[in-house]
Each structure stands twice: as C-alpha cells, then as structure tokens.
C-alpha cells in the first residue's frame, strides 16, 4: 500500500490524509462482567440462536400467510353511499373514542388533540416522568398502574369498535348479488322450500319479499346456522317456521348453502 511506510501489509495506515485517523482508538463494547451468569459472544453463538427464533417465527408467519388470502374489495366507488367505513384494526381505539359524545361534535378538540396529546405525549416523555432509579415493575406502581390501565382501555375500545362494526354490518341491508339465478331450482331442496312458508317471505326466486333475499346466502351462512334460524327465528322472522321433518330440513339447509351467487 502506497501510504504504508513501515511495510506492514496487514495494517492500513492512512497517514497524511483525511479518510481515517491513523491511530483510531478501539471502541470497547459495554462490559457485562458485573452481571452474573454466562455471557455469550454475539458473533457467532448468539446470532445462531437469534436465527433459530426467527426461523420459528417465520414458520408461524408463513402459515398465517398461506392460510388466509389478503382481502381485496371492489374498485373504490366514491358515489357508494351505503359503504360502512372502518379503519385498520390498530386505529380502532381512536376511532371508537371519537364516537363518544364527550370527544365528538362540539368537543372534537378533545378527541383529536387533547386526548392524543396527553396520551402519546406522555408516552414519548416517559423517561422524564418516571425518573426513579427503580426498574422492577412492582417497585414503581404508578408507572405500571397507568400503563396497565391504558392497555386495558385500548383493548376495550378496540373490542367495542369491532363489536359495533360487526353489528352495523349485520343490520345494514345486504346488497343483492348481481347474479339472480337460483341454483338447482329443480332439486329436492327447492321443492321443500316451495312447500313450506319460506317462499312467502323470501320469494319464489329467493329474491326477498317481506323478508330479505336469500341469493348468495351460502357465502355468509353455514348449514347449522340456517337450521338454527329456521328453528329459532332471526330478527323479524318468527321461530318454528319450518314444518317438515329434520331430514327435509337438512336437505333444505344444504340446498340453501349452495346459493353462492355473486
């Protein structure tokens, strides 16, 4: 190396230029010798263990990915007035408190500024709020208590928002599918449907008269759920509307599950 005057080829020696200081002091990593027990070198011993943890994590993650396809809806239609908006689940707790009277309407400032400023502001400056030397959670009850309350409140708000959204979805008028053709109209299922009171409210083409349309019902309900509704009723539908035998009921429910019109 041209800059190296002492002939030592292992040592880079950028003397006389600005790249690296010639006698760069070695930075010693923090020493854990005061800690009890077995320290381990990061490279390669501990890194191997980290990789094993990551591999286990990856298997779980890829199982989730392969089990559940990511959802994709219809292209956005700004003129759609009946769509129920919902944010991603990790924003639901904010979304929920904005629905309460004390944080909405006239008091929206509380919901959008004051509450987030207090909560997230406090979270950001936690080291200056909790200044004691003590680190064990039980020895600093105020910090631990406040965080636990915040945690429970976040879970509760998220739960409440999700619950409300599911209920709204159920009570919203279901949009009739574009395909209005009844599947298997000459099967035994349809004959049983015709003989019973079903046809009076749900229509001869499943289009819905007094009751909701059953087109596409197979995408939302299982056989067991449909049998339960026949026996116990649902919403405005009274219990015990089905008069036939349990075998017929099963055939009818199985036939309804086949109605997967889109």
């Amino acid at each position: 190396m041209s800059h190296n005057q002492d002939g030592n080829h292992k040592q880079v020696h950028y003397v006389g230029d600005s790249r690296v200081r010639a006698n760069r002091t070695k930075k010693y990593p923090p020493d854990y010798s005061e800690f009890p027990g077995n320290n381990e070198a990061f490279w390669p011993d501990f890194l191997l263990k980290e990789w094993m943890v990551a591999a286990v994590f990856l298997v779980g993650f890829m199982t989730l990915v392969m089990a559940e396809d990511p959802p994709l809806g219809e292209i956005a239609d700004p003129t759609n007035t009946s769509f129920l908006p919902v944010p991603d689940w990790y924003f639901l707790f904010i979304y929920q408190w904005l629905k309460y009277k004390w944080a909405a309407g006239k008091f929206i400032v509380i919901g959008t500024i004051i509450l987030p400023a207090i909560l997230f502001g406090a979270l950001a400056v936690v080291p200056w709020l909790d200044r004691s030397k003590e680190r064990r959670p039980l020895k600093r009850p105020i910090a631990t208590g406040l965080m636990s309350i915040a945690l429970i409140a976040t879970v509760a708000l998220t739960w409440a928002a999700e619950d409300e959204h599911v209920k709204q979805l159920e009570s919203a008028p279901s949009q009739a599918p574009a395909n209005k053709k009844v599947i298997g109209q000459n099967e035994a299922g349809y004959q049983i449907y015709e003989k019973n009171a079903c046809i009076k409210c749900h229509g001869d083409q499943l289009q819905g008269l007094n009751g909701p349309s059953l087109l596409g019902v197979g995408k939302k309900r299982t056989t067991d759920e449909i049998i339960k509704y026949m026996n116990e009723g649902k919403g405005a539908m009274p219990a015990g509307m089905f008069q036939g035998s349990p075998q017929e009921q099963k055939i009818l429910a199985d036939w309804l599950v086949k109605q997967k019109q889109k």
Binding site: Y32, E40, F42, F46
Partner: peptide, 16 residues
Amino acid sequence: RDVADHEVPEHVNPAH
C-alpha cells in the same frame, strides 16, 4: 468487527 464483537448477557438469552 464493531458489529460482531460484543457479548450478550445471560438474562436476555432464551437458550439460558
């Protein structure tokens, strides 16, 4: 070496 050369204490090591 700066990245690799450090010790990891026992209390954060799931193998222990």
